[in-house]
Simulated scan of single mutants.
Amino acid sequence: MRRWIAPAVIALTGAVLAAVADSVTALVVCLLGAVLVSPLVFPFPLTDAMARDRSAKDGRAIIYWRPGCPFCLRLRFALLGRRAHWVDIWRDPGAAAAVRAVADGNETVPTVILAGAAYVNPDPRWLRGALAY
């Protein structure tokens, strides 16, 4: 429930701005912002250990991301309908360490683990095809 607070505040701010300033644009921009920060775009993040366990069982890719990353957002939209395990590197130090281990010491996201191989900032179209199971 807590994850919906920020989107709700953004949407309410847009509604207030629209009412006070008579601006539909403000409402549309705020509603778009609310959707982008909502759990609709990024599901509840798993820990690195949870994602590795689940991936070992179901074979799905692990995608390391962080909030505010435009490349992660682009990848998320490109993968709509594709299932993967999303791990927020800012919430899990183990996930950040896993990314640094495969990205030359950097926390470059998105980083994808697919079938045991690591891909740093992969092309969304390529990954979409690779995840078409």
Rank of each mutant, 00 (worst) to 15 (best):
M1L: 11
M1K: 03
R2C: 01
R2Y: 10
R3Y: 11
W4L: 14
W4P: 00
W4E: 03
A6P: 12
A8E: 11
A8I: 14
I10M: 08
I10R: 00
I10S: 03
A11P: 01
T13C: 13
T13Y: 03
G14C: 10
G14S: 03
V16W: 14
A18S: 12
A18G: 14
A18W: 11
A19P: 02
V20P: 07
V20F: 14
D22N: 15
T25P: 00
A26N: 06
L27W: 06
V28Q: 05
V29F: 07
L32V: 13
A34Y: 05
V35S: 03
V35C: 08
V35G: 01
V37R: 00
S38K: 10
P39R: 07
P39E: 10
V41N: 10
F42N: 11
F42S: 08
P43F: 02
P43Y: 06
F44D: 15
F44V: 14
F44N: 15
P45R: 08
L46W: 08
L46G: 02
T47A: 06
T47L: 05
D48P: 00
D48H: 13
A49D: 12
A49Q: 14
M50L: 15
M50A: 15
R52F: 00
D53P: 03
R54Q: 15
S55P: 09
S55T: 14
A56W: 12
A61K: 00
A61D: 04
I63Y: 05
I63R: 06
Y64C: 12
Y64I: 11
Y64S: 10
Y64R: 09
W65D: 00
W65F: 11
P67K: 12
P67C: 03
G68A: 08
G68Y: 14
C69W: 08
P70E: 13
C72A: 01
R74N: 14
R74Y: 12
R76W: 01
R76D: 00
R76F: 00
F77C: 04
A78C: 07
R83Q: 15
H85N: 10
W86I: 04
V87A: 05
V87F: 01
I89P: 01
I89S: 00
W90L: 15
R91F: 07
R91E: 15
D92H: 00
G94I: 07
A96M: 11
R100P: 03
V102D: 07
V102I: 04
V102K: 04
A103Q: 08
A103L: 05
G105F: 06
E107K: 11
T108H: 12
T108C: 01
V109I: 10
V112E: 00
V112Y: 03
V112I: 10
V112A: 02
I113N: 02
L114C: 04
L114E: 00
A117E: 12
A118S: 11
V120G: 04
V120Y: 03
N121I: 02
D123P: 08
D123F: 02
D123T: 07
P124N: 08
L127V: 11
R128C: 05
G129V: 11
G129F: 12
L131P: 01
L131S: 06
A132R: 13
Y133N: 09
Y133H: 09
